[in-house]
Design a binder for these strands. Structure first.
Length: 334
DNA sequence: CGCTTTTGACCCGCGC
DNA sequence: GCGCGGGTCAAAAGCG
């Protein structure tokens, strides 16, 4: 396997969201407040009130020291509060991920015995972390991956025990009935069925990028949580990523050729442009290396803008701000 | 016109 | 052997 891609410099971006740097930011805010107050204190004697000689330099120092102490106390309190918030956040994240892992993957265990078939032995099931990791939803969602043993009773797997199976859980709008998981590949839908254990239909897709590509995927809403789309991938692509060398198409598809991961330990979304998974890392490594930095930045901007504009809250807020500005600057209304 | 989606029919494995 | 249920096929419809 060509491992040259691993030597390429990482193009991973660490986009910090939330308040990961809050303590530092708080310190900076307090520092600026302190600096301005100190500067103001120093400016005060420069004012024409030279008559107030009673305000000695010693008193001035004491006042500044008192302010310093007060500010440092506030800083300490703020840091403690932020620390508590972060630990609470971590606990909530852990609980949420455990909940998802405990409910969705265990679907096979709660299936009725009637559905149980003489399935392949568990050791023939090859879970592909790489394949699962390459699936990226356009809306930068939390990305979950099954790593527990499941009851995969797919007859196709019996035909080809080497086929890789992976599941991807994508958070979507529960009211959205479309069974589409954008991952950058081209899929052709060839069937839809309503299964017994789930009221929502299951869609069957084939990879249509290459006629000989054996990869199939099934998309179905989770029976437990209808806001989660479960995409099951079978097999490995025998071709490169469709977006390889075609940046525009990747953007058009609403997906970037990169791994979007959500780190539960702290509120950070990582866009790692070196990650591609599915055994195609070498190609993507070259792909990322060849793409101009400006082009990459433009893609990222477009991707983020796309994600933002898809958020109804954002568009509503934007419309409110724009209309407010228009009213402010409208001479006829002033 | 070519590609994709829809959808009912069909195939096939499994349990009884 | 029969029925059930998941998976696939293929003709028709839809769409750009």
């Amino acid at each position: 396997m060509d491992s040259s891609w691993m030597n390429t410099p990482s193009l991973g971006l660490d986009l910090t969201v939330g308040h990961r740097r809050l303590p530092e930011q708080a310190s900076m805010i307090e520092f600026s407040r302190l600096s301005s107050s100190v500067l103001n204190s120093h400016r005060e004697p420069q004012t024409p009130s030279h008559d107030e000689s009673s305000f000695s330099a010693k008193d001035e120092v004491e006042v500044i020291e008192a302010k310093l102490n007060q500010v440092s106390k506030e800083n300490k309190m703020l840091k403690e509060k932020v620390s508590i918030m972060r630990s609470n956040y971590n606990v909530l994240c852990t609980q949420f991920f455990n909940l998802v892992a405990a409910t969705s993957p265990s679907k096979g265990e709660v299936e009725s015995p009637a559905r149980k078939r003489k399935s392949e032995s568990p050791e023939t099931v090859n879970y592909s972390r790489e394949l699962a990791s390459e699936q990226v939803d356009a809306n930068i969602v939390n990305h979950f991956e099954s790593n527990s043993s499941e009851d995969y009773s797919f007859k196709r797997m019996r035909e080809d025990p080497r086929s890789k199976i992976s599941k991807v859980y994508v958070h979507t709008d529960p009211s959205d009935s479309s069974l589409v998981v954008k991952d950058g590949y081209q899929w052709r839908k060839y069937g839809q069925k309503v299964t017994r254990d789930n009221p929502s239909p299951r869609a069957y897709y084939r990879c249509s990028f290459a006629p000989t590509c054996p990869v199939k995927k099934k998309v179905q809403k989770s029976a437990e949580d209808r806001s989660i789309l479960v995409a099951t991938y079978e097999g490995e692509h025998n071709h490169g990523h469709p977006s390889q060398g075609r940046v525009g198409s990747a953007v058009q598809n609403g997906s970037l050729p990169c791994l979007v991961s959500f780190n539960p330990s702290h509120p950070t979304i990582t866009l790692d442009l070196t990650q591609q998974g599915g055994g195609h890392q070498p190609e993507v490594g070259r792909f990322c290396g060849e793409v101009e930095l400006a082009e990459l930045q433009q893609i990222l901007v477009e991707q983020m803008a796309s994600s933002l504009t898809k958020d109804p809250k954002f568009t509503t807020a934007l419309a409110t701000v724009i209309s407010g500005r228009m009213l402010q600057h409208s001479p006829s209304l002033n």
